[in-house]
Design a protein around this nucleic acid. Structure first.
Lengths: 206, 206, 206, 206
DNA sequence: GATGAATGAGCCTTCATTCAT
DNA sequence: CATGAATGAAGGCTCATTCAT
C-alpha cells in the first residue's frame, strides 16, 4: 500500500523528469510520447493515465521547472540585502543570476517557451508571470532598499532592475549559442563584472 | 518570354514568403508543407521542386529573412556616424534598433531559432554569424569612432556595444511577450530613451 | 486470457495472408499497405506494429509461403521410397510435384521472386536455399536409393533429379501462362506421364 | 532535315534502350520516367511525346527485346538442319539456346514478364506468342525432320522439343539465380552436354 | 518536336490517443 | 492503475502526367 502510493508518486515524477528531458532535447512537437514513456521506464498508456494528454504533460513539466527556476533566482536576488562591499555583492549576485540563466534547464525552458508560445500562450503566464516578473520585482525591491540606504542613486528601481538584468544577460544568447554551447565559468564571471561595472557607473551613488 | 522566368521567380518568392509565415505561425514541426503550398498558391510538389525538402525550405526562409534583418539593422547603426546632439542620435538609433527587434519577422526569427537550434544548429550561423555578430561589430565600430572623437568615454567598444544592446533589448522579451503582444510606439520610445540615458551615464564623455 | 494472444496471433496471420494475396495480385511495388490492411481487416498502423515496414512484411510473407511449399514438395518426394511399380510411383510423385508447382501460391511465389530478386536478393535464399535446393537434394537422395536398388540406371543422382524436374516442369510456364491460366488436371497428368516416360527411357534400369 | 529525322529516330531508340535498361534494373513499377529520360539523355516530356505513357513504353521496349530474342533463338534452332554428328550438333544448338536463355536481356525479359503478367496480360502474347511458342514449334519441326531421316526415334516432335528444352533450361533458374549470377561458360556447356546426353538416351534412334 | 516547370493523386510511415485485460 | 495492442488521422515525399514556351 504505502509501497504502491510511493510507486505511483515515483512514476509520476519519473514521467515529469523524462518529459522535460525529452521535450528539451527534441522539442515539443518532435518529442514522442513513446520516447518519454521509455525514458521514464513506464508504458505509454501510463503517461496518459497520469496526465491525460501531451499538452497537459508539457504544462506540468513547465510548471515543475519554472518553480525550480523561481526558487533559484529568488535565492540569488535575496543575497542583495546583506552588508559588505556593494560592488562585490552585486558581482556575486549577478554571477549567480547569470548561472541561473545559463542552466541547461533554463535554456530549455526559454527555448521551449519561444517555440510554443504561439500554440500555448498560457505557458507565458507560467514562465513570465510566475518567474521572470517576480524575480524582476524582487530585484527592484532590493535595489530600492539600496537606494534608500544611499548606496545607489535614487531612480526608478524597476528600471534599474531591468537595466541590470539587461546588462547581465544581454550577451548570453550570443555567447551561449542559445544553450548549445557551455560558457566557461570565468567568462561568465567576466560578464558579471563588466555588467556590474557599467551598472555602478550609471547607478552608483553620487 | 520574361513571363516564364518571372513566373518561376515569383513562385519561389511566394513559397519563401508563405513558408516563413506558416513556420512562424505554427512552428517548424507543426507546419504542414501542404499548408505552405496552399498559402503560396502552388501545388505541394512545386515546393519540393524548388527546395527539395522541408528542412532546406526552412533554411532558405531563414536566410531570406536574416538578410532582410541584417540590412535593416545595418541601416540603423550606420546613422550613428552623423553630426548632431549625441543623445538625440543615440535615442533615434536605439529606437530604430528596437523597432527592428520588435518587427514581427524578427520575433519569429528568434523564436524559430530558439525552437530549432537543437535540431538544426546551423541556423545559428545564419542568424548569429550573418546578422547579430555583424550588427554588433558595426555598432562597436561606430562607438569606437565616437570615443575617438571624444564624444564617449574610451573603453572596449565591443563591450560598450553589448551593453547598449542589452540596455535596449533587455526588457523587450517581457514587454512584448515573446512577440505575441504589440508594444506601443511610445513605450518603445521610452525604452530607448531610458536605455540611452543609462548608457550615457555609464559611457558618456567626462 | 488466451483470447488476447489468440487475437494477436490471428491478426498476424491475417495480415500475412492478406499481404501475400495482395502482393501476388498487384505486385510488391504496386501493392498498398492500406489495401493489405483492409484485406486483413485491421488498421494500417497495426500492420506496422507487427512488421515494421513493407519490406519486412514481404519477407515474412515469403517465408510463410516458402515453408508451406517446402512441406508440400517434401511430402510428395518422400513417397518415392515406397514399393510398387516404379513407373506408377514416379508418375504419381511427378504429378504431385507438378501440382505443387502449379499451385496458385507457388506461381505467385516464383513470379514475385523473379520480380523482386533485383531489389531484394535475399528472397532468393528463402525460396531457393530453403525450398528448391532442399527438394532437389531430397529427390536426388531418393533416386540414388532407387539406383542402388537396381531400379534405375546408376548415374549422378543430382543430375537425374534435375532432369526429371526439368522434364516435369519445363513446359508448365508456357502451358500455365505464368500462372494466369489454370491447367486442367488431365493435362497435368499427361505432362507427368510424358515426363516420366522420357525419364525412364533415359534413366530406366537395363 | 535529314539530320532532324535522324535525331528523332536516334532519340526514340535511345529512349527504348534506356527504358529497357532501367526497367530491367529497377523493375517496371520502381522505374521512374525521369530516370529513363536521364539515361536516354532527353527531357522527361520527350519520352511522353514519343510513347504517350509509361505502359506503352514498357510494351515497346518489350517488343524490341522480344524481336531480338526471337531472332537469336531462331538462328540457333536453324542450325539443327545441317549434316554432321547428331550429338555434336545437338550440343552446339543446346549450348546456343542456353546462351540465349542466359543473356542478360533475356533474364530481364522473363523477370519483367513474371512481374507484370498480372497487370499486363498482353505482355505474355508478345513474349510467348511471338517468341517462345515459335521457337518451340521451330525446334519441333527440326526434330521431326531428324526423326524422318531416321536419326531420332519417331515420336511426337512437339513433346520431344519440350523435353529437350526442359532438360536444357530446367536447372538454369537455380544456377543463374534468376539472372543475378553469371554462370561460367564451361558450366553452361556441361549443362548442355548433360541435357543432350539424356535426350539422346531417351530419343536417340534405336 | 523538345523542354522546364507545375501538378494532383497516392503511398509509406508516424504518432497521439484509446481500449481491453 | 499499469500495460500491450490497436487505431485513425495526418504528414513528408514521389511520380506519372500535362502545359506553356
Amino acid at each position: 500500500m504505502g509501497t504502491t502510493a510511493r510507486g505511483r508518486i515515483d512514476k509520476r515524477a519519473a514521467i515529469l523528469d523524462a518529459a522535460y528531458t525529452v521535450f528539451a532535447r527534441e522539442g515539443y512537437a518532435q518529442a514522442g510520447v513513446d520516447v518519454i514513456a521509455a525514458e521514464a521506464g513506464v508504458a505509454k498508456a501510463t503517461v496518459y493515465n497520469h496526465f491525460g494528454d501531451k499538452e497537459t504533460l508539457l504544462r506540468a513539466a513547465f510548471e515543475a521547472v519554472a518553480a525550480d527556476a523561481l526558487a533559484r533566482n529568488m535565492a540569488a536576488v535575496e543575497r542583495l540585502a546583506g552588508p559588505g562591499d556593494l560592488r562585490t555583492i552585486l558581482e556575486e549576485v549577478g554571477y549567480d543570476l547569470i548561472r541561473c540563466y545559463c542552466d541547461a534547464k533554463s535554456w530549455a525552458l526559454r527555448r521551449m517557451l519561444a517555440a510554443e508560445v504561439g500554440q500555448f500562450p498560457d505557458l507565458l503566464d507560467i514562465v513570465q508571470g510566475r518567474v521572470a516578473d517576480r524575480v524582476m520585482e524582487s530585484l527592484a525591491d532590493r535595489l530600492a532598499r539600496l537606494a534608500l540606504a544611499g548606496r545607489l542613486r535614487a531612480t526608478d528601481p524597476l528600471l534599474a532592475a531591468e537595466h541590470l538584468s539587461g546588462l547581465l544577460t544581454g550577451s548570453l544568447d550570443r555567447r551561449g549559442r542559445y544553450g548549445t554551447r557551455d560558457i566557461p565559468e570565468d567568462e561568465l564571471y567576466d560578464v558579471a563584472r563588466a555588467a556590474v561595472d557599467t551598472f555602478l557607473q550609471a547607478f552608483g551613488a553620487e
